[in-house]
Amino acid sequence: MDFWKENKTHIYWNPYFGGFMLGLLLIATFYITGRGLGATGGTKSAVITTVDKVAPGYAKESSYYSKYYDEEKNPMNNWLVFETIGMIAGAFLSGALSGRVKFRVQHPPHISSNKRLIYASIGGLLFGFGSQFARGCTSGAALSGSAVLSLGGFITMAGIFGTAYIVAYFFRKMWIN
């Protein structure tokens, strides 16, 4: 029991149990909304709103934003935005219940936290760009796409994991000794 308490912050769900729950959630999401989960959709809406606040009119004219921009409808007023807010709340809840909430930078011992932050920002940039190009990220395209057997979903899944496996060797210094 003591062991359990001490290591509580590192006790995660069994991955198969987590996967099973995530699968059930995907089914429920498709049953209710007819489409899957997402993570960058909400982020994109936030970007559009910000751009619109900073430079009014630009969002309407920009060929990329205008697709999503609707005068009557606030872009923030989007299903995925609410879902994203829920995600943050849900993750916080889980973290708080397991005592994992803490401001810190998680990094391998041989990498300084500043370096880790730089890597994270490069990764974020690439992921943001790539997710827009591929019309969805790991959750939107790969997970939700595959759930309904979308060819694009499987391709994106293979693209993400395949590339990461192939190049993992060259980036090993970032993660392991």
Binding site: R35, A39, T40, K44, K67, Y68, L80, R135, G136, G140
Partner: peptide, 8 residues
């Protein structure tokens, strides 16, 4: 198909 563009 309802266009739920750029899901993710």
């Amino acid at each position: 198909k309802k266009a739920a563009e750029g899901g993710c």
